[in-house]
Amino acid sequence: MLIGSEIIADMLRNPDRDDPLLVVPKPDVNDLIRAGSASLDLRLGTWFGTLRGERTSCLAVSSRHTEPSLVKLLHVPFGKPFYLHPKAFVLASTLEWIRVPSKLAGSVTARSSWGRRGLIIATATGVHPGFTGCLTLELANVGAAPIELRPGMSLCQLFFEEVNRDLKTTDKSRFLGRRKPILGKIDLDWIAKALQVQNP
């Protein structure tokens, strides 16, 4: 079940001592209650990442390439624009650092006003219990006009849902915090590896 903004506001105002929901910088809780929605607005951060297509023939699974060799990072300070041109794809991060307690999970979606301008945000939307860090956003301009983005602007929204189980044993190393967008790893698990064998 989605959690309403009043409950989110309450969690932020009176954080659980052992396992709090944290959003830093803290949003205006009164504003959140006034909005009466079921989500939390998130802002665009200052780090962007573009794929270095020239370094590799394709983004292969278990590539020998390191993350810095595949992603070129760019820092755009407050007050400066970042222009996303038609058909361009860029990784970005949220301004907010989010710590999700073990009893919650979240999902990120675009704000509709951006979608109508051709900006697609966060195609990988899940935020797991125990996550702590800035969310990596995938931004793509599918419209016909370039889009001006500015760090600090409200860009997407985060919905929270309660997790039925109290996942105290979450593998926290998977979600350890980063402030910059990351590509992450894609590895073949043992089943996928078994299925790759040509002549079994």
Partner: peptide, 8 residues
């Protein structure tokens, strides 16, 4: 230290 989140 406790929450692995930056400070405000």
């Amino acid at each position: 230290y406790s929450y692995l989140a930056p400070c405000s």
